[in-house]
Design a binder for these strands. Sequence first.
RNA 1: GGCUCCGUCGCCAAGUGGUAAGGCAGAGGUCUGCAAAAUCUCCAUCACCAGUUCGAAUCUGGUCGGAGCCUCCA
Length: 490
Amino acid sequence: MPLRVYNTQSGKKEEFQPLVPGKVGMYVCGVTVYDYCHIGHARANIVFDIVYRYLQYSNYDVTYVRNYTDVDDKIIARANERGISSQELAEEFIQAFDEDMAALGLRKPTHEPKATAYMEQIIALVEQLIDKDMAYESAGDVYYSVDKFPSYLKLSKRNMEEMLAGARIAPGELKRNPMDFALWKSAKPGEPSWESPWGAGRPGWHIECSAMSSALLGTSFDIHGGGRDLIFPHHENEIAQSEAASGKPFVKYWLHNGFVNVDQEKMSKSLGNFFTIRDILKSYDPEVVRFFNLTAHYRSPIDFSDQNLEEARIGLSRFYEALAQLDKALAKADTNAESGAVAAALAEPVERLVQLEERFRSAMDDDFNTALAIANMFDAVRAINRILAEASHLNGQLQAILAKGRDDLLKVGDVLGLFGSNPAAWLARSAQEGLSESGLSAADIDALIVERRQARANRDFARADQIRDELAAKGVLLLDGPEGTNWKMK
RNA sequence: GGCUCCGUCGCCAAGUGGUAAGGCAGAGGUCUGCAAAAUCUCCAUCACCAGUUCGAAUCUGGUCGGAGCCUCCA
């Protein structure tokens, strides 16, 4: 089945056919680097990380471009507040962004251009638009003339008259049409600026992306992504600029991710429900955050809450539990075991396991349906657990099936950026989370486990249960197994 | 007001014409000294109304409820 993607432009799922067979050019709007990134940025970047990974997994040669907007009103304002240069501020938050993305386990894009490094291309593009009479200079500013671009608003499906009703021109802006937007802004005193044919100034936001994408991907490319909120005006304006300049279609597929809400409300600084990536990683494992993001479709809104994150943690640990059990069983299995037929009772789980990768692919081919993909992966987990629980011994055949199933699960997990840790190590880490709040140390617990083992050996179950209850009251759960007793935090 | 979109089990969440995936929680069985984990079984007719259709959660119209965008924003 071919890959199908939902295109915001058409409002439909379309079969994905890149402009050049086997190659994909993809541009995603990055961040304006004036503050730490929040969990909404995390979602957008995780979503397109998955798109990137899945296209690579599907054997496309992908060129992925994600920019840094490092010149902007907000950067200037924040830099002035702190008494440092815009450039210093931008560099600080570029580094912070890189750290956050690395912590979340994102694959590095092919190119991460900074807008300020493309000033020449930006100016050339603005000149080109003026030459084509699509833009005009006005007192040192340059504006794009939306009336000259007949298909303006085709992406956001808005109506020009309606838009005009609510539009107004800010004081000092000399626009012909209130909807015209700035390609170049003349410099005010103390602002960073670049020389241009229209005097010293700096680029408008939209033109930066048009210039960087065409420089690195060409004037037409396959995928452009970003958050829903960027559809208008940012992406609409990119289309107007790029298509007017090149005379060619700009982007084939527009992909937009849904928003993150917090406890059912829009996240905003004023509501006080605003979380940066760094905040959240203090309480949650990065892989849990990623897993949580993938349990819903990328276009749907997701609700960030402790309960939902906790559910994600439990769900992810189910995978790691199964992988750890599987590793243990395979390590113990007799490598010289005879080959033989699989018992009829195990035919179904074996079949499920064998089909994992195919089912994963068919879910992902349907507009990157990670929620369905994960459901299919849970089926594989149940299959593994069931084989381990029901097979009296692992013959050569079953060992091969389980080993292959393990490899497949890790392989599809890697496409989603999951299961990168050693299962036993991940579980051990997860087990100890919250230990410090219990007031106990691992050594305390081990000592009690030893005492309890003795009690159990003496069939003093009252004392054994008392120890377990005491620990349970402090959030420590004892797990008796054939090889002794383990523990984990609730 | 305009434009997008949503309303599926207690909670999260797929499915968009062929008779409801998955996870969490819950009930019961197996295992266990007892538990936990694992496993097995059970647990929804898809906000409401009216249509189209052999057949609708899925299409059409309407009603109610909710969200986002229309200004910087992932």
